[in-house]
Design a protein around this nucleic acid. Structure first.
Lengths: 208, 208
DNA sequence: GTCTATAAAGTGATAGAC
DNA sequence: GTCTATCACTTTATAGAC
């Protein structure tokens, strides 16, 4: 009748994965320890064997989602052939919207986790970490877009990155609220236009 | 020893006001009926005399904040003398940032209320209403900015409004996370530039 | 109408058997 | 290490005295 012995680290990651599913499906507020262990198929006591508290799990959950974030979102290392800046941006944004619409609960969860972290002073650094990562990913995507299109950005990359992240965050909220696909498509068209206007073609013969 | 008799409508609005303060100060999750009645100086039973449930109060709270929203945010009916579009936009965005930094908890509360509403099917229409209002306010502000600057927008006003709202939403989250004033200033500079590029000077003699 | 008291159903966390 | 059972507490909501 006794369950098999599972290393603590495995239990921890299983609980983190279960917690992410529960948060996505039902929200942070409903992600109780009981709901999480039920999702993970464990007993309540096992939870507290692996984690000292619910907050400790939530902190690990945020670290987890931040770490595995964004591989395939805005940037896409596959495409490297030259293309116009506007088209690269448009495709990157479309890729993000596709990601959002195909799994909206995931992005809803990310937003909720950020705001949950903002309510507790000890968790605030985690939210900060999360957005530093977003900004870094956006800067990287914009940098490679410039290289691919032979463009020179007319503004500091960090500023442009913050603009892009703010735009996608806002886009996400608006879509989660009204599910308006047409308006979202128009929005990323507009956004790609305006962002592309912030770059200028670099000199010819880029390396001499 | 008996408390004075207070009309139900007054109790309701007093509770809504108290709830808004509690949500701003401690977050939606901590806005329990007990915390709210304590803030309002009432007994718990009085709460349930005025409202059937906590959800009913929360719904009324959202309706309340949506209704009284945005009078003095982006648009500003005082200024009507002509000015360049870019400057009008820059000042409007700065006004929003001033509002945000002077009372960050209020904007944090608005974001939390939206996401709370998104978790319950019956409340989702309220979030929708909230964003319809945002978009309408933004469209109005952009329309009057165009008139004041003698500009013609090159894209449909609703699309531009959605862009502006998304931008300010994202800007808000980023600032709430890292409190980076310099980055926010750079962001609204950039945003004003890019938005202004979406308009063209109208023909001279605007009415003949 | 307004109160105190309490019901009924959660919650995070722990004790202690195995 | 893993379980069941339970503690101590909080939550929303209601009964019933006044």
């Amino acid at each position: 009748m006794t369950m098999t012995r599972i290393p603590a680290v495995e239990r921890r990651s299983a609980l983190v994965a279960a917690a992410l599913r529960v948060v996505a499906e039902r929200g942070v507020a409903q992600a109780t320890t009981r709901a999480i262990v039920a999702e993970a198929g464990m007993s309540l006591a096992s939870f507290h064997y692996a984690f000292a508290s619910r907050d400790e799990l939530m902190a690990e959950l945020i670290r987890h989602v931040v770490a595995r974030e964004g591989a395939a979102i805005l940037g896409d290392a596959e495409h490297t052939e030259p293309a116009p800046l506007r088209r690269i941006l448009r495709e990157g944004l479309q890729r993000y919207v596709d990601h959002l619409t195909s799994d909206p609960l995931r992005e809803k969860a990310m937003l909720e986790l950020t705001q949950w972290a903002l309510r507790s002073p000890s968790m605030q650094p985690l939210a900060r970490l999360q957005y530093e990562r977003y900004h870094a990913l956006a800067a990287e995507a914009l940098g490679s877009a410039a290289a691919r299109s032979g463009t020179l950005w007319l503004h500091p990359l960090p500023d442009l990155a913050r603009l892009l992240v703010s735009l996608t965050d806002g886009l996400t909220i608006a879509w989660l609220v009204d599910n308006d696909e047409g308006a979202t498509t128009a929005l990323i068209d507009l956004a790609a236009d305006t962002l592309a206007a912030l770059g200028r073609p670099a000199e010819e013969s880029p390396h001499r």
